[in-house]
Design a protein around this nucleic acid. Structure first.
Lengths: 333, 333
DNA sequence: TTGTAGGCGTTATCAT
DNA sequence: ATGATAACGCCTACAA
């Protein structure tokens, strides 16, 4: 911790070779067996480990990947992060995590920071996909992979999932199980998932004809879900919903909690379904029916995509598609 | 993304000064106003941003902090991570996250990796504090802050919390609310929190005399908690517990879920309390009584400690202490 | 096969 | 106040 770490120079001296030979041996290039042996021995004795910064400077690669996450409090991002780590396994790169909070400026600052060269690429799953953000990502100093659907125009690698299809699956399931007045608790409408899922709900509503009231929550949080329930709770008669479809699991959990406190029975009095299938969805009582958006798999794919892009910067942009999957649990059956 | 980024050389040429002056101006050292102005203008026009790698090499600092987490699936670590980010705010350093899984070798490899100089320090909250691990941390290439209690001997900065006191608080609360046969669901006994909390439970038991059966779970997970309940469920008569104290919230949630499925009423038939006070503890039904171990605060303090250590490597080791806090909710009252 | 030397981008010393 | 230059640790032509 105190002693200065040995460098190629120390190793070279000890092995009685030049630093070039040291570097070659350590990087697996060919060298005379005797030299190889001496270098390896010297390196081992000295406890030599190549310096990441020196190597980065020389190679022009930091061997780091940045992952920007909007809301660390949402388990879905933890799962995605876990997937990113999986996808990076064996790549030799490390993971730099930045939570950008809910401040768009933070995110822009992060993208700017990339031009410092501390990461070779960025994985991002932005809640708000504004044109400015997309443009910033396209112009970023390093390649970016977006987890989320983009207009075909943007020259960016993406990992997509049709969350609208997920909404439809949940909706259909609610109808199949006899619900006839399905309320929707949407996320903030200015977010990509917020608007996409609301649209899908409206579409499903016009097809199946069981759409009930729509509430826009302030965020994708449990608290917002609880508040959303308050708006729903007052409705009576024909406006009173027999099911709630929420734009994500945290909202659904909030709705369930508030509805239960208010004396509603779930699922007999009210069915509730969410989206994301976070790990806790299974644990709740009643356990929450939810549409898995395969966060982990998306993270894994994003990492593969990014590593591929870094290896071949000129290759045509790619898109990976993942399919949503309805997981039926107690809250609807 | 394609064009090579400008360096001090470009800026210097454009401003008609030397690279030394560019560096000085950009780092806020004194310079003639006219030079300052020209340099700033040139830098702005070129969109110059200092390269992190070049700076790191020269400064001998990577401006990165590593955070090693045993189990990303446990929200308590997400909260701690969040605290670490808070504590690092404004320091100019970035956060590198590595989840070491449950493989001790991974962790050792991570510590070895530190000697590559990719981080200036490490924050770690290890489940298993073996002598080998502690020694490795002491010998690590960069300073380490341990979130957890260590023997006084180890020359490491630490953030402590008396989780035994937390166990006692919960135990006392259960006794106060009339429970007379308190079961304990402990984590793996070879982990630091596993053994510390079990010991505290035994101590409280001998003091208050209401200790019931003890179950050792395989891990600190919901699933392990569900399995633990299975062991408890068969007990009858005098061995049948009227309360369960679990070594962490995930275990407690698992116990609650399994007990409810088995028809036990909570808290009337069985009281359940956990430890950690993860965000979801509040959301469950019934909401979970838990002892907050201030994960976020501990993360924040760890970051401060580490930054201080990096700034003053020779300073005496420090320990921050945080107090546990019992949060009473529905699962016990 | 091996060594010398240059350069990646930055900061800091030492003259001027 | 400023400029030339060295140095951080590494890899890799290029020359021998």
């Amino acid at each position: 911790m105190t002693a200065r770490r040995p460098t190629v120079v120390q190793v070279a001296e000890r092995a009685h070779v030049s630093i070039a030979t040291v570097s070659r041996v350590l990087n697996g290039k060919l060298a005379r067996p005797s030299s190889t042996e001496r270098v390896l021995a010297a390196a081992a004795e000295l406890g030599y480990v190549p310096d990441a910064t020196g190597r980065s400077l020389r190679m022009g690669r930091s061997l780091q990947i940045a992952f920007a996450v909007d809301d660390v409090g949402n388990p879905v991002y933890t799962e995605m992060l876990s997937g990113v780590e999986d996808g990076m396994a064996g790549s030799g790169s490390r993971l730099s995590v930045a939570s950008t909070g809910h401040n768009p400026a933070d995110l822009m600052a992060l993208i700017d920071e990339l031009s410092r060269g501390y990461a070779d690429g960025l994985i991002i799953s932005p809640l708000r996909r504004t044109p400015e953000l997309i443009q910033a990502l396209v112009d970023a100093a390093v390649p970016t992979v977006v987890v989320g659907s983009l207009d075909a125009g943007a020259p960016l690698d993406t990992v997509r999932i049709d969350s609208g299809l997920g909404v439809r699956q949940a909706y259909e399931h609610l109808v199949d199980t006899g619900r006839r007045r399905i309320a929707f608790v949407g996320g903030p409408p200015d977010t990509a998932p917020g608007s996409a899922r609301l649209n899908a709900f409206r579409l499903a509503g016009s097809e199946f004809g069981c759409a009930g009231p729509v509430v826009q929550a302030q965020g994708f949080t449990v608290t917002a879900g609880e508040q959303a329930w308050l708006e729903l709770a007052g409705l009576t008669g024909r406006r009173r919903p027999d099911a709630v479809l929420a734009a994500n699991d945290l909202l659904a959990l909030g709705v369930m909690r508030a509805a239960k406190s208010a004396g509603r029975r779930i699922p007999s009095g009210l069915a509730v379904a969410g989206i994301d299938d976070i790990q806790f969805a299974r644990i709740f009582s009643p356990s929450l029916t939810s549409v898995s958006l395969k966060a982990r798999e998306r993270g894994r794919l994003a990492a593969r995509l990014l590593l591929g892009r870094i290896a071949a910067p000129g290759a045509p942009t790619r898109t990976e598609q993942v399919e949503p999957e309805l997981i039926i649990r107690e809250s609807t059956s």
